[in-house]
Amino acid sequence: MIIAKGAEAVIRLENGIVIKERIRKNYRIEELDYKLRKSRTSIEAKVMKLCRENGILCPNVIDYNDFEIRMEYIDGKKLSDSFSLDLMKELGKTVAKMHNINIIHGDLTTSNVMIKDNKLYIIDFGLAKISKKIEDKATDIFTLKEALKANHTELWEKAFNIFISEYKNVSIEKDKILERYYDIEKRRRYYENSNY
């Protein structure tokens, strides 16, 4: 049974196991498409294993091949569907823990976070990577902020502030990362509060 169809993958649930398959994108030339799908699948599986080994909750990877990952099914709700400010604190802690071990999620949004038994599970590591770069960690935070802003138009600012204050408590490089985060804001062509 297909349970989700994202931009790059089809996610099926079979016998209680989730199978994420990266499908061929015909708009891309085959060479580029093959390379992207293969490397993203392998990085995704490795990053998820690394998360589990370090006490960061995400689905348990059973096995994987070139374009497919088989993983544990998380029977919960998406954070975007049952959004609450309290959970943003937990998310701040989780993302800081990921960054502390150089895991970059690459696509942090409230629909890539699941809630099960009041615990947060990070899902969809499709754009994840392992990187020590301050820029990459700051970009992760920036991506989350943009997603909050776009999807939770009323509460985003509060939610983001709660996220940041807990992130600061846990992150080991908080000053550098947050400083860079503000740089990224300014680098964009039309940032807020910039008047003529």
Binding site: K5, G6, A7, E8, K25, Y27, R28, I29, L32, T109, S111
Partner: peptide, 18 residues
């Protein structure tokens, strides 16, 4: 062209799915 347009179309598809 192949690289940057693929990036743009991928980002657009993500927005459509999202």
């Amino acid at each position: 062209q192949e690289t940057v347009f693929s990036m743009l179309i991928e980002a657009a598809e993500r927005a459509m799915a999202y």
